[in-house]
Computed example of a mutant assay.
Amino acid sequence: MSNMDKGIQYMQEGKLEEAAQYFTEAIEKNPNDPIHYINFGNLLLHMKETERAERFYKKAIELDKDVATAYYGLGNLYFEEDNFSDARKYYQKAMQLGLEEADVYFMLGMSCLYDEKEKIALPYLQRAQELKPDDSDVVFQYGLALAQTEQLDTAKEIFEKVLTINEAHSDAHYNLGVICLYNSNLDGAINHFDKAVQIQPDHILATNAKTQVEKIINEES
């Protein structure tokens, strides 16, 4: 097992000091390999040392301007800093250089979503959920973007798909409740809000919505 492989293994195990040691040794042995700088950048980002991480990603790009994962790393770094404009720029660059994984589509979509660019987010999140159809969180975020762009029928189908993947997804139930409410289906709304609260007792939005709908039902009866 190479120093790089050992470093990645230690990072996955949460042994960060050991990972840093192996990544340092890998750089010392092969100082012109951009992958070692990217791995160290990923470790530093995980440790919230963003300024150092940025330097390592940029060093990797100096060594190879076409290394897609360095741009993806910078995208993640700027995303963590809520700099969604720069995050999008680097995610797009990573994609242009051939990074076609679900994660880059997902993160690009999320950076658009958090920057209130829901319509722009849609195709990226759609592609992410096509590549990761069994990831309930990826599929859910696509449904949320659909709901925020008022495509409620399609959003309903996607939230229902989320529940086939993870029946204990409280936010999917909550959003299905909101769609029921929008369609004047009070009983359906109560049912979904109630399930959301059963799954997550501290789900404030579902709790408040359930209380309001129950109040409306009592007033009408």
Rank of each mutant, 00 (worst) to 15 (best):
A128P: 01
Y142I: 11
Q148G: 12
T69H: 09
R88I: 15
G7I: 06
D5E: 13
E101K: 11
Q126Y: 01
S136N: 13
K161I: 13
E130V: 13
K65P: 07
C112P: 02
I38P: 09
L144R: 08
F159Q: 00
K65S: 12
D86H: 12
D135F: 03
K6F: 13
A209N: 12
K195E: 07
I120W: 08
H169E: 04
A155P: 11
I35D: 08
I8M: 09
P123V: 04
A147E: 05
R52C: 08
T211S: 08
E219K: 14
P34N: 01
E54R: 15
I27L: 07
A87Q: 15
P133H: 01
Q198F: 03
D5V: 01
G109P: 10
E18W: 10
L131T: 14
A172C: 11
V197H: 01
A70C: 11
A53H: 07
L74A: 09
G177R: 01
F79Q: 14
Y174D: 03
T154V: 06
R55E: 14
F84S: 06
N185A: 08
G14N: 07
D86Q: 13
K65M: 00
H203E: 02
A196Q: 04
N208F: 05
Y71C: 07
F193G: 01
I35N: 09
C112Y: 06
N76A: 10
Y71W: 03
Y142V: 11
A196Y: 06
E25S: 11
Q151E: 15
A168S: 12
F40C: 04
L163G: 01
E101G: 09
Y71H: 05
H192A: 09
K119S: 04
A121W: 03
V67T: 14
N208K: 15
G73D: 08
D153L: 12
S184G: 01
K161D: 05
I179H: 06
I35A: 11
L74D: 09
G143D: 04
Y72P: 00
A206E: 05
R88N: 14
G98H: 01
D137R: 00
N42S: 03
E130N: 00
G14R: 14
Q148M: 11
F40D: 05
E160N: 02
L205P: 03
P31E: 02
I165K: 14
F106M: 08
T164P: 05
K132E: 03
T154I: 08
A172M: 06
G41N: 02
L131S: 12
F84R: 11
Y90C: 12
E130F: 05
Y10P: 03
G177H: 11
N208D: 12
N39C: 06
A147N: 01
N175P: 02
I38L: 03
M110C: 09
